[in-house]
């Protein structure tokens, strides 16, 4: 993979809140068609790091390269213009507006006179939903009255409809039941085929282990390391998340300690 140009490369990113280093000199990258899991405990800095890529938060220092070119991302608009779409853990839907309105929020289809073309938006939403979640049928009610899985479908539809090249998913399956989780997994596989690069953020390694090609672990704002999934076991990654040590640094004693406290951690 190393001879290819990475789709995204974030170098030496840093974000501080007051005196607290939420993200401290972190570098990660992502290749086309690849899923990179970004894991770590609460407060590890995963979400803050990724927000600098989605334009929701400005980095204090560091550089971002897309296709090897340096870019400046300071607003969500900048990110979207570069083909970066984000599905937030909180989904960030306007509850009082219907599904097509949310899918096209900020990018409404209009008629020649600049009026909202609701029918065209509903039609496009029906088409994208036909691909993502064929059972989705509620297009004319506020999304407030939809189930968790349906709301997730709306958020995903919004991200994939506009030909995203880079997709950021923050805890994509945290609020979903088993059937809906399976659906999201199938969708991610499908997007991978389309050469989209995906960052999956989770505090739970089990959420991302199946899908991820590589896994980057963060602890207290620092990058512990990035590993190929095939080279490590789940336990070794758990050790990285909790102890902040790379696999080769972990001793038998550490593993034993982890096994004892394993239940509390898992």
């Amino acid at each position: 993979m190393s001879e290819r140009v990475p789709l995204v490369e974030m170098r030496n990113m840093a974000v501080a809140f007051g005196g607290v280093h939420a993200v401290d000199d972190v570098s990660i990258d992502l290749y086309p068609g690849e899923v990179v899991g970004l894991v770590g405990g609460n407060g590890a800095g995963k979400t803050t790091l990724i927000k600098t890529l989605s334009g929701a938060h400005k980095a204090d220092s560091g550089e971002i390269f897309i296709d090897g070119e340096p870019v400046a991302i300071s607003t969500p608009r900048d990110a979207k213009a570069l083909g970066i779409e984000t599905i937030y853990q909180t989904l960030e839907l306007a509850d009082n507006i219907d599904a097509p309105g949310n899918v096209f929020l900020g990018r409404e289809l209009t008629t020649r006179l600049g009026n909202l073309d609701s029918s065209a938006m509903e039609d496009a939403t029906r088409k994208v939903m036909g691909r993502l979640n064929p059972r989705f049928e509620t297009f004319v009610v506020p999304v407030e009255s939809l189930s968790g899985g349906q709301r997730q479908s709306v958020a995903i539809a919004r991200a994939v409809h506009f030909n995203a090249r880079i997709l950021i998913m923050d805890e994509p399956t945290a609020a979903l039941g088993p059937a809906e989780t399976k659906q999201v997994r199938e969708l991610i596989r499908q997007l991978q085929q389309e050469e989209i690069g995906i960052f999956m953020i989770s505090h739970d390694i089990h959420d991302v282990y199946d899908l991820a090609d590589r896994i980057s672990v963060m602890l207290q704002g620092k990058l512990v390391g990035t590993v190929n999934k095939g080279d490590v076991t789940v336990d070794e990654i758990l050790a990285m998340i909790i102890l902040g040590k790379k696999p080769e640094e972990v001793t038998q004693k550490d593993i034993a300690q982890l096994a004892e406290g394993g239940l509390a951690v898992g």
Binding site: S54, A56, T75, P76, R77, K80, T86, Y88, E92, L93, A94, D95, N96, I97, L105, G106, R107
Partner: peptide, 12 residues
């Protein structure tokens, strides 16, 4: 009115 943060994040 429905969700100020979401509207901001949608690039509006």
């Amino acid at each position: 009115g429905g969700n100020p943060e979401a509207t901001e994040l949608a690039g509006i």
